[in-house]
C-alpha cells in the first residue's frame, strides 16, 4: 500500500489475469482444442453438391408447415398418436409407482446398505442405457408393438425419478424426520409423516415433468418398431410426404407445449 508500490505500478501495462494461470497449460489447452476442431472438420465428409440439392427440399419442408396435411393419412396419424399417448400414460403410471420404493431404497439416509446398493445399481443401469437401445432389445425379445415401448418408457422413468427422489430425500431436513421418529413411530409411519410431506411437492413436479419427457420419447420409439407415432412419421419422411410430416410435428409440438403449460400450473399449485 506504500507509495513506493504505487510508483512501481504506474506506467506498467495491465492485463486481465488469465483463467488458467500456468501459460504452458493454457496454450496447450488452446492449441489442443484448435487442433481437435481442425481434425474434426477435416474428417467430416460433406457432399456439398448433395447439400445444395437438398436446400430446395428443405425449403419445401419449411413451406409444408404453412399447409400441413392432417387429412390424407388421418387414420395413421390418429392411430399413432393415440398409441403414443396410451404408452405415455401407462408407462408413467407404472414407472412412477415402481420408482417410489426404489427411490426410497436408493436414499442412503433411510435405507440399509445392501438395499441401497441394489437400488443404486438399478438406477445406474437404467440411466446408462439409452431409451432407443432398450427399445431395440425389448422389441427383439417381446416382438413389435406398444408393449415394448411401454416397458422401455417405464424402465427409463424408474432411472430418472428414483435418482431425483433419492437425492431429494437425502437432502431433506433431518430435524423434522427425527421429531416424528422420536414420537415412537413405526418405519412406515415415519416415512408417511416425516419424509413424505417434505418430498411430495417435488415428487409431483418431477413426475409431471417425466410425463412430458415420456411423450417426447414415445414419438421416436416407433422408429425401431416399439409403437407410437414415430412409425407414421418415419413412413412420411420415406415417402417425402412433407406435409404429413409437418402435420405430425405440429401435433407433437402442440402436445408438448400443452404438457409444459400444464406442468407449470400444477407445479405452481403444489409448491
Amino acid at each position: 500500500m506504500s507509495h513506493r508500490e504505487l510508483d512501481d505500478m504506474l506506467g506498467r501495462k495491465w492485463r486481465k489475469p488469465h483463467f488458467v494461470t500456468n501459460p504452458v497449460l493454457r496454450w496447450s489447452l488452446i492449441f489442443g482444442f484448435i487442433a481437435y476442431l481442425i481434425a474434426a472438420f477435416m474428417t467430416i465428409e460433406v457432399d456439398w453438391g448433395r447439400v445444395y440439392e437438398g436446400l430446395d427440399r428443405g425449403w419445401q419442408f419449411i413451406l409444408a408447415f404453412t399447409r400441413p396435411d392432417f387429412i390424407s393419412r388421418a387414420g395413421d396419424i390418429w392411430g399413432g398418436l393415440l398409441e403414443s399417448i396410451v404408452m405415455t400414460v401407462a408407462a408413467s403410471v407404472v414407472g412412477i409407482l415402481i420408482s417410489i420404493p426404489i427411490g426410497l431404497g436408493a436414499a442412503r439416509n433411510i435405507a440399509p446398505l445392501p438395499v441401497y446398493m441394489i437400488c443404486r445399481g438399478i438406477v445406474a443401469i437404467s440411466r446408462a442405457l439409452q431409451e432407443i437401445i432398450v427399445a431395440i432389445l425389448l422389441v427383439a425379445i417381446f416382438g413389435f408393438g406398444p408393449l415394448a415401448g411401454f416397458l422401455t418408457l417405464s424402465f427409463a422413468t424408474i432411472g430418472f425419478l428414483s435418482k431425483l427422489l433419492a437425492e431429494d430425500i437425502e437432502s431433506m431436513d433431518k430435524v423434522q424426520a427425527e421429531a416424528i421418529r422420536a414420537s415412537g413411530a413405526k418405519w412406515m409411519q415415519w416415512i408417511n409423516y416425516g419424509v413424505q410431506p417434505q418430498v411430495m411437492p417435488r415428487l409431483i413436479g418431477l413426475s409431471i415433468y417425466r410425463v412430458d419427457i415420456n411423450f417426447r420419447e414415445s414419438a421416436i420409439l416407433g422408429l425401431v418398431g416399439a409403437g407410437g407415432i414415430g412409425a407414421t412419421l418415419n413412413t412420411a419422411f420415406d415417402r417425402y410426404e412433407y406435409d404429413t410430416a409437418a402435420a405430425i410435428l405440429i401435433l407433437i409440438i402442440g402436445i408438448v407445449m400443452m404438457l409444459e403449460y400444464l406442468s407449470g400450473v400444477i407445479r405452481a399449485r403444489v409448491q
Binding site: V51, G54, R57, G58, F61, A219, L223, N234, A245, V256
Partner: peptide
C-alpha cells in the same frame, strides 16, 4: 420438443 432422431430423419431426407 422434437427429438434429435427425428431431426436426423428429416435432415437425411433433405441433405442425405
Amino acid at each position: 420438443s422434437i427429438n434429435s432422431l427425428i431431426w436426423a430423419l428429416l435432415l437425411i431426407a433433405i441433405i442425405g
